[in-house]
Amino acid sequence: MSTFIARRLLWSIPTLLGVTMLTFVLIHIAPGGPALALAGQRATPAQIAAVTHALGLDRPLYIQYARWLGALLHGDLGYSYVQQSPVALLVAQRLPQTLLLMGSALLASVVLAVPLGVYQAYRRNTTFDRVASVFVFLSWSMPTFWFGTILIAIFAVTLRWFPVGGLQTIDTTAFDWPTRIAHLVMPAATLAIVSVAGWSRYIRGSMIEQLREDYTRTAVAKGLSTRRVLFRHTLRNALIPFITLLGATIPALFGGAIITEQIFAYPGMGQLFWQSAIDRDYPTLLGMTVLTGVLVVLGNLFADVMYAVVDPRVRYD
């Protein structure tokens, strides 16, 4: 098992290097570049040249890459000239909020998507299945921000159940869970809607496939209850490929967080990324891209390992 993990870790190194190279290329095709940003819009060509030299931007590209990568390995994600702060600091303030949001959305998606998918598969091609499919497709095709706005209009403006946005009510200074959760419900629901749709569809398909297998027929023939067959036999097998899908959903969740955090003025990574894109704050954009890439690769690695843990047919060697 440890050999398997070690091998998978080694395999993710080229991908990680690739992510840094992609990011580095993007830095260099970005117009303006750090020299112009630092020297200011009114700088003379000589001043820009001086800054370029001071930053080492006139060195050969591979040397620049090596130095940038070296800094990255020391935890230096770059420096935001717009916000006048190291990118790592900006990210450190916001990453926990986004992970909390993503975690809640992930949990909500699993809790809703798995039973829905199982039941749709069990009752496939019935009116329930068809109606549910239409709703699944509709929520899959909905612009996220529209859904978020509808939630705000209903639950915050009309019913006043939840606050409109933000991370915490402004006058609460202490960290208290009830207001925290109240501020989390609508953003998490907005972020979750797409994955609920996609996953329930996936579980449905995967369950239908498993329900055709011989072992299912055997389990039914043994006289086991429907519930036991569905949840103890079929679902377990249907969930195995789902683990990989979970890993692959992480980037989509980071992307979705951009829009969700924007709707609910939630101070996380997504909002920082959007603000940086509007300000053309390239160092921040790229620092965040590298960091997210690393998190995604690690997430996929974790999914692969889990896959091997739950499916004994996957060989470790």
Binding site: G18, T23, A252, I258, V296
Partner: peptide, 22 residues
């Protein structure tokens, strides 16, 4: 396919936002 893996590791909306801003 490794290159595709690399691109898939970066959220599409990040790339989209970056390029669209640029």
């Amino acid at each position: 396919m490794r290159v595709v893996d690399v691109f898939l590791s970066v959220p599409t909306l990040f790339l989209l936002l970056f390029l669209a801003a640029m």
